[in-house]
Simulated assay, not measured.
Amino acid sequence: MIRPVRRLTALTVAGVALGAALAACGTTAPSPHTTHASPAPARPAPAAKPPTLPAGPGGLAAVFSNGPRTAGKTVALTFDADMTADEGPRAAAGEHFDNPALIATLRRLKVPATVFMTGRWADEYPDQARSLGHDAQFEVANHSYSHYAFTGDCYGLPTVSAANMKSDVQRAYAALLRAGVPHPMPYFRFPGGCYDDQARRAVGSLGVTAVQWDVVSGDAFATDADAVTQQVLDGVKPGSVVVMHCTRSAAPTTEEVVRHVVPELRHRGFRFVKVSELIGRTPGHR
Rank of each mutant, 00 (worst) to 15 (best):
P68V: 09
G152F: 11
P57F: 12
L132T: 07
L60K: 04
R69V: 12
D86M: 09
A55D: 08
I103A: 14
A76S: 11
A101C: 14
D82L: 06
T84G: 14
G119F: 01
A76W: 05
D127Q: 13
R108K: 15
A55V: 03
P126R: 03
R107P: 05
N99P: 11
G94C: 10
A101I: 12
F116S: 04
K110D: 15
S146F: 08
H147Q: 08
F116H: 03
K110T: 11
G67Q: 03
M83R: 05
H134S: 13
D86T: 10
G133Y: 03
G58D: 07
G72T: 07
L77Q: 06
A62R: 01
P126K: 03
L60P: 05
S131G: 13
D98S: 14
V75K: 00
D80I: 07
T84K: 11
A91D: 05
F64E: 01
T84S: 15
Q128T: 14
S131K: 06
S144F: 00
A129P: 02
M117D: 00
T84I: 14
G94Y: 10
T151R: 04
L53S: 03
D153T: 13
A149S: 07
H134Y: 11
G72C: 11
A91N: 04
T74R: 15
P57W: 11
A61W: 03
E87F: 11
T105Y: 11
P126Y: 04
L132H: 01
A81G: 14
D127I: 10
F150A: 00
A71D: 07
T52K: 02
S144H: 01
E139F: 08
D135I: 05
L77F: 09
G56S: 12
G94D: 09
P89N: 10
S65D: 14
A91L: 04
T118L: 03
Y125G: 00
D82A: 10
F79N: 05
R120E: 09
G119Y: 03
D80M: 07
T52Q: 07
H147R: 07
F64D: 06
A55K: 02
A55R: 02
T151Q: 00
L60S: 03
I103P: 04
A92Q: 13
R130P: 07
D80R: 04
N66C: 15
R108A: 15
P126W: 02
G152S: 14
S146G: 05
N99S: 15
D86Y: 08
T151Y: 01
F116Y: 08
R90G: 09
R107H: 11
A71G: 08
H134D: 13
D80C: 09
F97Q: 01
H96R: 15
A104G: 12
S65G: 15
A61L: 04
G119A: 08
P112T: 07
R69A: 15
P68F: 10
R69D: 12
S131V: 09
A62E: 00
T151I: 07
W121Y: 10
D135M: 08
L106T: 03
D123Y: 09
D123L: 07
G94I: 10
M117T: 03
